[in-house]
């Protein structure tokens, strides 16, 4: 037996999915906690952004690790989905669902949507290639006011809708994914099993509300540049 058996084995591949998914979720949670600094005002938020930048190579190490994990997650997600489709070549004339839900059935789609969103989000706020509001100006030192960048962006309707839609996809994806990952990691038993599924949805809902609050509250003028 070797660790390469993980790749050949159905449960092994799912373990990779679960662990990578949970790692990325860990980032998603911390990212939200950081972003909530927006509500603490311009100064606090910009300080947070600046401190992140000061991490330097560490930040890049983290980013690369995260990107790798994510790619693993995406790759295995697609692979497993293709296998699953192949294992069920014919459906039923009438198909009645007894247990599964929209979130579970759309994992691969919400996942793809999130991947597209992520690319857009990186181009938007990290690489600043698209969607930056024209009135956003660099200050004298050539650095950008991150707080202004975010708040000005979210005064436009289209980005707000896009971000809100993406967060809905995130909700669905994690709503099934979190409980599913814990089950795959063998964390469920008689007592936890019903709770885990619900718990996953509650955490996902919290993330949805947290993330959506930023563009929505900004749009409606609760946060102003």
């Amino acid at each position: 037996m070797q660790l390469t058996q993980l790749l050949r084995n159905s449960v092994g591949r799912k373990l990779i999915m679960a662990v990578s998914g949970l790692l990325v979720t860990g980032f998603v949670v911390s990212h939200l906690l950081g972003n909530l600094a927006l509500f603490a005002g311009q100064e606090a938020f910009n300080l947070y952004a600046a401190q992140l930048q000061q991490l330097g190579p560490l930040l890049w190490l983290f980013r690369l690790g995260l990107a790798g994990t994510l790619l693993l997650h995406v790759f295995f997600g697609i692979w497993l989905t293709l296998q699953n489709r192949a294992a069920k070549p014919t459906g039923y004339a009438i198909n009645r669902i007894r247990s599964t839900n929209l979130a579970a059935k759309t994992m691969v789609f919400t996942g793809m949507a999130l991947l597209l969103f992520l690319i857009g989000h990186l181009l938007h706020f990290t690489f600043r290639r698209i969607g930056l509001p024209p009135e956003l100006a660099h200050d004298a030192g050539g650095t950008l006011d991150v707080f202004d960048m975010v708040t000005l962006s979210f005064q436009q309707g289209f980005p707000v809708l896009l971000y809100a839609g993406a967060m809905l996809a995130l909700f669905l994806h994690l709503g099934h994914g979190l409980g599913s990952a814990l089950q795959t990691l063998g964390a469920c038993n008689d007592k936890f099993l019903p709770g885990v599924r619900k718990g996953g949805f509650i955490v996902a809902l919290a993330l949805l509300l947290g993330y959506v609050s930023i563009p929505v509250l900004t749009f409606f003028g609760f946060v102003t540049p």
Partner: peptide, 17 residues
């Protein structure tokens, strides 16, 4: 679980159907 793949069964994605 190795045999499961060989026999053409899919992977569990916790639908609980």
């Amino acid at each position: 679980t190795d045999a499961m793949g060989r026999e053409g069964f899919g992977n569990c994605s916790n639908h609980y159907e």
